[in-house]
Amino acid sequence: MSAGEQLVKDAIKGDDAAFLQLIQLYKIDLYKTALSFLRNEEEALEAIQEVTYRAYKNMKSVKDAAYFKTWLIRIMMNYCNDQLKKKKRVVLNDELLNLQGNSENHTEMELKDAMLGLDERSREILTLKYFQDMKIKDIAATLQCPEGTVKTWLNKALKALRDKLEGNGGDLHV
């Protein structure tokens, strides 16, 4: 058993120090996830607060210590998706994106905007794969689906992303 897994077990039993150590361990991953969804520091920090809260309240529902990180990222993504829906904000209009769409290398800004224009599943899968650097196997466990499905979704997500970047994205309003 890894040291991390022992911490998870201690935290489930109610060891606060173990819980805080775990959050420390994954705070950068959580922050990057929040930032990729919510786009600004202030909201990402608010997300960290809420996810710490939710994680603490629900430690007992962690079933497999080996998947604690994916469990935590899952909470973060649920929270972020809810926030995005609540805000119903328009990310970019088509016109603006079309203007930006044809340059050879997409700027960071475009990429971030395009990510936000994707459907929930695509956004989640790209976040897990590229920002969290997770293996297909772990993504499958997080999303609770077969590995083959993850691969299919991943391809669809990349295609959707390219379409958005190239300005064929159609409706970009979230």
Binding site: Q24, K27, K32, L45, Q49, Y53, Y56, H106, L161
Partner: peptide, 27 residues
């Protein structure tokens, strides 16, 4: 696309103090 995505959040500034404050507040 994959390359760009991988690099996207590699070089961000992480506000460590604020991060710890947020964790503390949530806890």
């Amino acid at each position: 696309e994959e390359e760009q995505l991988k690099n996207l959040y590699d070089n961000i500034q992480v506000p460590l103090d604020s991060l710890d404050d947020a964790i503390f507040a949530g806890f």
